[in-house]
Nucleic acid binder design. Sequence first.
DNA 1: AGTCAATTAGGAACCATTCCGCATTACCAT
DNA 2: ATGGTAATGCGGAATGGTTCCTAATTGACT
Lengths: 149, 149
Amino acid sequence: MTEITKESIIKQLKERGLKVTPQRLAIIEVLIEHRQLHPGARFVYEEAKKKKRGLSLSTVYATLGELSRHGIIKTLQFDQIENRYEGNLEQHINLICEKCKKILDYKVPNAVDQRRVAKKTGFSITDTRLEYYGYCRECLGEEGSKGGE
Amino acid sequence: MTEITKESIIKQLKERGLKVTPQRLAIIEVLIEHRQLHPGARFVYEEAKKKKRGLSLSTVYATLGELSRHGIIKTLQFDQIENRYEGNLEQHINLICEKCKKILDYKVPNAVDQRRVAKKTGFSITDTRLEYYGYCRECLGEEGSKGGE
DNA sequence: AGTCAATTAGGAACCATTCCGCATTACCAT
DNA sequence: ATGGTAATGCGGAATGGTTCCTAATTGACT
């Protein structure tokens, strides 16, 4: 049920009293069509603009923020590269390629036990972020050396 | 061997042909004295300036970047809060309090097997980032509700 | 159709971080 | 100690993703 579909998102929007606008539909479609990309705001903007003329970047940010705030999608925040958005809300590890910036999902077989963390440290977990950085298969194959640039 | 000490850092600087300047010493001292804080650049700047008058923010950024680039410390990159720096290079999970922004280290008992990830996905891991967000014991205790803001 | 609050567009503002050119300095060999 | 030299430091401007602001528009519901 954590899989992202256009219908499920629309349903969730309505359930929460949020309006379903053409702008939002365009943005949602882009998110779904490029779910494997984990696209950033700029990318979503450029693509969604093709579907809905006059769309503004502010709207994209507002919408992505709204979806994220309601737990419909998840915002992956970065510093050096722009934030990315994903619809896969299951616990998993994001494999982030340093070269092509692609982000792959890796389903965690047996994750770290969050309950144990809470018990041992008194820390109450509300969200997790598990990321591995490195080089994806494609980028490794393209060139012999991967350390370069 | 991953523990951060002033001497070890100086040693590493010299080994790599980097100069040991008063500015850098001041910055390193701050990093060590506040290692549990996982301080940000601004904090380091404010504190280090007390030790070395005239220190500029650019220098702090440059030094932290240099230390990080050489693997002497690790940069924790964020978007909404400023980047933070830590000397603990062992694999661990950072517990980040949403309220006070404190960052605690949690030694991982049995981490996710990186080798398995590599084998299954062909992804070559160079760095990891494991973070749990939530509320630390202190912030949980201060108030009954933790969701508000 | 009418009402109202949510949403949108556009641009200014924000702010951590980086970049730039020049002055200063740590370090090594003499 | 001294001098040469490349690294480093400084200060301020620039960068760029994201947020904020306000007026105008538009869905959703009656």
